[in-house]
Design a protein around this nucleic acid. Structure first.
Ligand code: MN
Ligand code: MN
Ligand code: ZN
Ligand code: ZN
Lengths: 143, 143
DNA sequence: TTCTTAGATAAGAATGATTCCTATATAAGA
DNA sequence: TCTTATATAGGAATCATTCTTATCTAAGAA
């Protein structure tokens, strides 16, 4: 997804965060890259135009954005964390033989799940979020 | 879950793996520890009785066991990988404020999901596994 | 506008989980 | 018992992430 500079700034403000060039660049990168970039991908993307940004800053800012609800972490089998700027409810399709992670949106499924867990209460647990990990293989082998 | 020495040996053989004391100890550890231990927990557990085991061996063997379908990796927000010896279909309840990960078994839910995805085919994707990440908070704060 | 300062960043060292390397050991079939 | 493909020990190396500290700056106050 592509956001205007103004939209990015507004998102930072709405989250109660100071607007800095670094934060602006990082949030823009996560949106522009799409498909759940790693911190390293964010860094590489930003350094083209903004070579000075410190590695640690990117990690710090991504953490802050996760805490503020601007991005989400995407769990992985691998060592590197992945990030997601799409905050709408959706699920993830993991390719078994590559690092590809695709989004899966499906309101009907979400309603099904919500209805199910409204009925079948988990005792002693307050559900905040339910995300499906759908694992398998893409028939075509493209990206 | 507790397995006899014979059961462990048999599982290794069935998976086509050579039976070594290290592999025996590691598989036993993952079963005995339960609750999705990290490699470090496995190492600590084993070293009590078997101090000589090498760190790298544990990582190697865990990888081999994942490839052989003896254990599964459990995805996490954190840096350390977690492992699961329970190969029956089940889902995971993640505590938002600790590293606690509980199992969630529910055949009714599994049938619901299966039926759903049988109907709503994902194009160009062959589903191998669907696992729910249920995130939230435990009311009681115990382990 | 200028001042103030809590909070943010740069730079690079440190950490910690995991992987790699290679000499040695061993499971298990012949 | 022999053989050898495979596994392990031991320790160095890697690499994602975190930490530390000096410096800088966003943004509210004056
Ligand atoms: Mn790490
Ligand atoms: Mn790591
Ligand atoms: Zn996503
Ligand atoms: Zn489990």
């Amino acid at each position: 997804m592509k956001l205007s500079s103004e939209q990015i700034k507004q998102k930072l403000k709405d989250a109660g965060l100071r607007v800095t060039p670094q934060r602006h660049a990082i949030l823009e990168a996560v949106y522009t890259l799409g498909n759940h970039p790693s911190a390293e991908q964010v860094i590489d993307f930003i350094r083209v135009r903004y070579p000075g940004i410190a590695t640690g800053t990117v990690y710090n800012v991504l953490d802050v954005m996760v805490e503020s609800g601007l991005v989400k972490r995407v769990k992985t089998d691998k060592d590197a964390m992945r990030y997601d700027a799409i905050m709408n409810r959706h699920h993830h399709i993991y390719c078994a033989e590559s690092d590809r992670i695709e989004d899966y949106f499906d309101e009907e499924l979400d309603e099904l799940l919500q209805a199910y867990f409204r009925k079948k209460k988990l005792q002693d647990f307050k559900i905040e979020d339910i995300i499906l990990q759908i694992k398998g293989n893409f028939n075509d082998n493209s990206e």
